[in-house]
Design a protein around this nucleic acid. Structure first.
Lengths: 246, 246
DNA sequence: TCCTATCCTGGCACTGAATGCCATGATTCG
DNA sequence: CGAATCATGGCATTCAGTGCCAGGATAGGA
């Protein structure tokens, strides 16, 4: 193990005692920083303030996190590398793999409300942080798109981009609703997430089918209630196929 | 008109002559800054350097543009407000309006290669600028999504988000190919743009039809060649409707 | 056990972005 | 012509971010 050494002066009983001190973990720093950002605002919190609050020197904070913003999004970065590795090694069919990857991202938010919830409030208040958050999700979208293009064939890069964008949009749709109301039952949240994913992937799968081509001659999309009669559906589709209907 | 006054000292024939000087336009500043960024790199170009190069004081640069990055994206901002205003006043049906709005954005790039092309190179080289570019397109996407939700009914917010994301993805797909190869015939570029838009809007329109609901019980998407027989299409759809097929 | 290479840390100094304050000059309105 | 308004630019200050360097801890080898 690294960083098990070092010593800290404890004040007690009038004596100073040297005690083994573990390196301040990334998570501890992030939690402290989030607390300061929330209490005093992002701009008004200085790196010096975070340094004194965490006991880590200002210089080391910059070395470990890169920038003040990066402290807020550090584990977002970790999650991204995890997801990217997962995709790279995934044996599933492309769309299912992307679906699972989106699930991992969503899980990353739900798992850590202590950080993601205050971060959401900060992101809403500060345009710069919002841009950063957006850029993070764009990285996922780009990774999804490249993955789909790679696995589905280069001729489908437009379709891949659209599908990736749709998956991310559906993910963000459910995510935002959770961030706004985190009190909801976790089971219900996951149900809505799966609904949204099914919604996009059902519509997306044909776009990525081999042989369909990047630009099909005709596309038909039908939406109908679950209790609709199959014959009725067929009849309506038949009328939709009339030359003047399209 | 504003800023037509002022005077500048010209050195000629050993005499100093006061001459009317127009305020340095935003565009001139942007062009000069882009030139410096390209020549010396974004980080190594200082605001002082831009100030001396343009004749505008450092302080005024910050006042007029907000930040160094903002100089690069200033007219992107203007374009956004134009597009947002257009959407707000658009009498067309929602999807067509969004289609036109995307066209305006694309036009904004094509119209001004002197800025957009070097900016693209800078954006590719610097992660921070890339994030900023991504955030800009996300603003369009968000505007499209809100507009569609507003016009199509609040129950369709998921569909609106997915459609907006798809439109932006298609837009970016064509845009990137142009940025990489700006030499292509403008007509051909527009043809590919319209193809991509048709590709997404054909698939998207049914999602926004009133009465379909935000989460339909069943969704069917069919892609088939233009020369397919209608009866054959119907037969296949009929078999797809069998309980075990879905 | 000792020595050494390596790595992390923190202190210091420096550059440069960004902001607040204020005086000046230009434009517009009455 | 006078007053109000506004953009400008100069100045000082704060603070993010970086380079440099020395000290302490750890791991590996003799």
């Amino acid at each position: 193990m690294k960083y098990t050494g070092g010593s800290v002066i404890l004040f007690g009983c009038g004596t100073e005692v040297a005690v083994a001190q573990a390196r301040v973990s990334t998570r501890e720093v992030v939690l402290a920083a989030v607390g300061l950002f929330t209490e005093y605002g992002f701009e008004r919190t200085t790196m010096d303030g975070i340094a004194t609050a965490t006991g880590v020197s200002r210089r080391s904070l910059f070395r470990r996190f890169g920038s003040k913003e990066d402290i807020l999004f550090s584990e977002h970065d970790e999650l991204f590398t995890t997801v990217a590795r997962y995709l790279d090694a995934s044996p599933d069919d492309p769309l299912t793999a992307v679906h699972s990857a989106a699930r991992m991202v969503f899980q990353g938010y739900l798992r850590d409300p202590e950080i993601t919830l205050p971060r959401y409030r900060l992101v809403r208040a500060h345009p710069r942080l919002r841009d950063r958050e957006v850029a993070m999700t764009a990285r996922y979208q780009s990774a999804f798109s490249h993955y789909l293009t790679e696995r589905s064939g280069a001729g489908l890069s437009l379709a891949s981009g659209v599908v990736a964008a749709s998956v991310i949009a559906a993910h963000n749709h459910v995510l935002r609703s959770w961030l706004r109301d985190p009190g909801e039952e976790e089971e219900a949240v996951w149900a809505r997430f799966d609904d949204a994913m099914a919604y996009v992937s059902t519509a997306a799968r044909p776009l990525l089918e081999p042989g369909s081509g990047a630009r099909p001659g005709r596309v038909l999309v039908a939406l109908y209630p679950s209790d609709a009669d199959n014959d009725e559906v067929l009849r309506r589709i038949g009328s939709a196929l009339e030359p003047d209907a399209f």
